[in-house]
Design a protein around this nucleic acid. Sequence first.
DNA 1: GCAATTACCCAGTAATTTGCTCGGATAAAA
DNA 2: TTTTATCCGAGCAAATTACTGGGTAATTGC
Lengths: 158, 158
Amino acid sequence: MRLSTKGRYAVTAMLDLALNGTDGPVTLADISENQGISLSYLEQLFAALRSKGLVRGVRGPGGGYYLGRESDEISIADIICAVDEWVEFTRCKGRQNCQDGQRCLTHSLWDDLSQQIFIFLSDITLHDLVERGEQREAERKEKRAAAAQILGLKGRAA
Amino acid sequence: MRLSTKGRYAVTAMLDLALNGTDGPVTLADISENQGISLSYLEQLFAALRSKGLVRGVRGPGGGYYLGRESDEISIADIICAVDEWVEFTRCKGRQNCQDGQRCLTHSLWDDLSQQIFIFLSDITLHDLVERGEQREAERKEKRAAAAQILGLKGRAA
DNA sequence: GCAATTACCCAGTAATTTGCTCGGATAAAA
DNA sequence: TTTTATCCGAGCAAATTACTGGGTAATTGC
């Protein structure tokens, strides 16, 4: 598993899509402005995402991108693997000195850990994140309302 | 959170230390050979690990490195953060267009996820990995023994 | 004392990755 | 047919990764 800024860009872009793509496609120009990523770089990322079926492009005016599947069918691992090219685990390829247990042990331990991280991120979907975000948002709103009421600012909070 | 090959190198090197450092310090030359990392690069990594107290160096012949703490007191997150310089979350620093909910929402969602990965890796210690490795090793040995017995190769397995 | 061995330190640099600019081509809506 | 958008690819600056090679400082065994 690998987690770079590239992966972060891809995830935030996909989140943008999940949030704003409910009524019509979202243009890369919009995402570019929202997330502060250059249009060309987004194009690169979305080429990878598209090839993996994670997004669907619609050309022409009024066009843009849709999610390729339902947001609860797209895991964070899917997204990161799509753009990070997933250069396979370090299974001691080529290094023949890894036959005898001791030496290769650390590698297999790392592989196990890597696998765990992968599974962890495979269990989190775009939908989960959005939902969690809404929940937080609601909590915050509630807190603000409660605070406003305690302070007697408005009688009943907006 | 960030997870690069640099972090992988650091983790496998620390695993090497945890496995082989029980009777005396381990030299970087050994780790270099075991893990296939250049000596100088290891020095760089260990300078960072040392500055965070994760390893302790001993100079002179017969010297090398010890773990700085007990292996169950060193988390994977500790190691990765030590070498990856932990360039802070993208909390929309500088970008003032992130005031209004919608735009900054994706960023805070990413931050949440990043935080979750961090916590996940903070809960896994070197000791955990080593132990799990031994367990796997034992399972494999058991399986081999059982297989040998079933096949009647040795009567009782070694 | 002296030589060997190790950590420690730092400057330079090749290779790779990241993220961007630019210049286009194709598809669809207006 | 013009405009809007995805698509496509070459090229490039900056950052990061990983290494080479120069040393110095501490410790050991002789």
